[in-house]
């Protein structure tokens, strides 16, 4: 299992051919209290960089882009009732959707945790 990051503050946790996407602790801190999450539809085919979801805080709405191309296999429906999970537990309970990764080669183009940490210094 490896976790990779985008410069846009999404994380992608890779387990086999499935990636779990959410936003980083840094991003949730910057956004403030999340009040609403618009989830993608299961089965939706995404290209890397496509808008996959929207998270809204009180003062901002932010698109969540697909870190890699693939098909949405599962979404975190718990967020509909408890969007605050993204704040309290962004990397576990606050995951947003899972994607069947179409091209594993794209993973290499993402940031590793050190590179991402540098970015958010």
């Amino acid at each position: 299992m490896t976790t990779k990051f985008t410069p846009d503050h999404e994380y992608l946790r890779v387990e086999g051919s499935i990636g779990t996407v959410g936003i980083t602790p840094y991003a949730q801190e910057a956004l403030g209290d999340i009040v609403f999450v618009e989830l993608p539809e299961v089965g939706k085919v995404l290209k890397k960089g496509d808008e996959a979801a929207v998270v809204e805080s009180v003062k901002a709405a932010s698109e969540i882009y697909a870190p890699v191309s693939g098909t949405v296999t599962e979404v975190n429906t718990t967020l509909s009732g408890e969007p605050g999970l993204i704040n309290s537990d962004p990397e576990a309970g606050g995951w947003i959707y899972k994607i069947e990764i179409a091209d594993a080669g794209e993973i290499d183009g993402l940031l590793d945790s050190d590179a991402y940490a540098q970015l958010t210094l």
């Binding site: 609403f36 809204e56 805080s57 009180v58 003062k59 901002a60 709405a61």
Partner: peptide
């Protein structure tokens, strides 16, 4: 409330 739908933010 729900003002993120509005253009001054979105």
């Amino acid at each position: 409330t729900l003002s993120t739908r509005e253009q001054h933010i979105r």
